[in-house]
Computed example of a mutant assay.
Amino acid sequence: MAHFNTASFQPKDQFGAWRSLHRDTIELLPTDELAAGFAAEFSSWRLGDLVLTHVSYTGAPGRRWRHRPKSYLDHWCVVLARTVAADGRPREELSFRSLALPYEGRAQDSEVITLYLPRDQRPADEQRFDCVHGLEVSQDFAPLLIGYMDGLVRRLPHVTPGHAASLEMPTRALVAACIIPQPVYQEAARSPLGSVLVDRARVVVRQNMASPDFGPDRLARLLAVSRSKLYRLFENSGGVAHFINRERLHEAHRRLNCERETLSIHAIGNEVGFIDHSTFSRAFRREFGCSPTEARERGLARSFADEWGEPPPG
């Protein structure tokens, strides 16, 4: 669990500290009402590769913000925002967004719960989820998802990391069932074997990515499927070569963000199948919007914040 509270800063520095905490995902825009301070508290928990965050504001002024262009964090997120209306009654809104796509907002929320879902799990999810960017979740399903997210915030402080990780797949399934339009979801359900094969392909790629010669033909042989079947499986998500390349890059990104990783950037590139360092750097920047060096620096900065409970300097 990570925790952060602006109360540890002087009022004049509180908004800057809050802005720094979120600088990798959104750009917070200053307002004219910050002299009295910016009282906000942040907590986060991991559910495997998912991240749940909870923010509470105490009389903080209204905020304007937008997704940071080409953020290396291109996750999807389910956002539950609560506001106290002028008549004193609470109001809540549940929406779904992609951090990789443009989005701007203005709010004076009193509480925000956000569930972040990384893109590198199932390529088949990408187009379906991106189609509902900016969607306000249907009222038929919103209460179910709201209740679940509230329950996570209440219970995760008392759950071990191992048990929390076991919630990843059920949580993903619930989000998909609640936010993907029903005709699209039904179409996806018609091909469960395709999803199983994609998962198998991901495992095989990760086992063989150190070989720079590993490509679609070898993947087809190891999966015991025809080349035509393999190409059909990935034709709507950029192709087989694109899938392999993304797996290489996402593994490199994961290792660059790991504080225990001691290998050089060049060595990591080699171990995920890139012989030429400049080719690796260009591909990495296209995928994540930053260089491998910048990704490593951001990983170290987040480790610093997690350890010391405050944003890194700078």
Rank of each mutant, 00 (worst) to 15 (best):
S8M: 11
W18H: 13
R19W: 01
T31I: 10
A39F: 01
R46Y: 03
L52Q: 04
W65K: 07
R68C: 03
V79K: 12
G88H: 02
S95N: 05
S95R: 14
S98V: 02
P102T: 06
I113E: 06
T114I: 11
L115E: 08
A124Q: 13
C131P: 00
C131W: 02
L135V: 13
I146P: 04
G147P: 11
V153T: 15
H163M: 14
S166E: 15
Q182H: 09
Q182A: 05
L197N: 04
L197R: 06
A201R: 05
N208Y: 02
A210N: 08
D213Q: 13
F214K: 01
S226H: 07
R227W: 01
S228N: 08
K229T: 15
Y231L: 10
R232H: 08
E235K: 15
N236C: 05
V240L: 04
V240C: 02
N245P: 00
R248S: 04
L249F: 02
E251Q: 14
N257Q: 13
A267L: 11
G269F: 03
V272W: 03
I275R: 15
F284V: 04
R296C: 03
E297S: 10
S303A: 15
F304K: 08
E310S: 10
P311D: 10
G314W: 07
G314C: 09
